[in-house]
C-alpha cells in the first residue's frame, strides 16, 4: 500500500517548514516552494511526512491514501 503526498499550491506560501521534517521526500525548488521528490511515499517515510503535514502553517499538504473514498466532500 502506497500513499501520495498532495500539495495544494494555491495554499502553499513557501514557508519551507515541510522540508525541515521530510527533507528526503520534499525539496525546495528555485523559488523556495516544495517539490515532491518521490511520487509515492514509502511506509518508512510516513512518520516524517505526517509531521511535515501537521507542521505546515498553511495546511497545504495532505496525504492521499488509496483506496480514496470517492463521492462525499464537506456538505454545504
Amino acid at each position: 500500500m502506497t500513499a501520495r503526498l498532495r500539495i495544494d499550491r494555491t495554499r502553499c506560501a513557501g514557508h519551507g517548514i515541510c522540508v525541515l521534517f521530510a527533507g528526503r521526500t520534499i525539496d525546495l525548488d528555485a523559488w523556495g516552494f516544495p517539490e515532491v521528490l518521490e511520487e509515492t511515499i514509502e511506509p518508512h517515510a510516513l512518520p516524517a511526512v505526517r509531521r511535515a503535514i501537521t507542521s505546515c502553517p498553511r495546511q497545504a499538504l495532505s496525504l492521499e491514501e488509496p483506496p480514496s473514498p470517492a463521492g462525499r466532500r464537506g456538505t454545504p
Partner: peptide, 18 residues
C-alpha cells in the same frame, strides 16, 4: 474567479459540493 486545487472532479463535487 481564481482556479482552485480540486480534490474531486467538478462533475462530482463542484459548487458547494454539488
Amino acid at each position: 474567479a481564481k482556479p482552485r486545487a480540486l480534490r474531486l472532479p467538478l462533475a462530482v463535487g463542484g459548487i458547494a459540493g454539488r
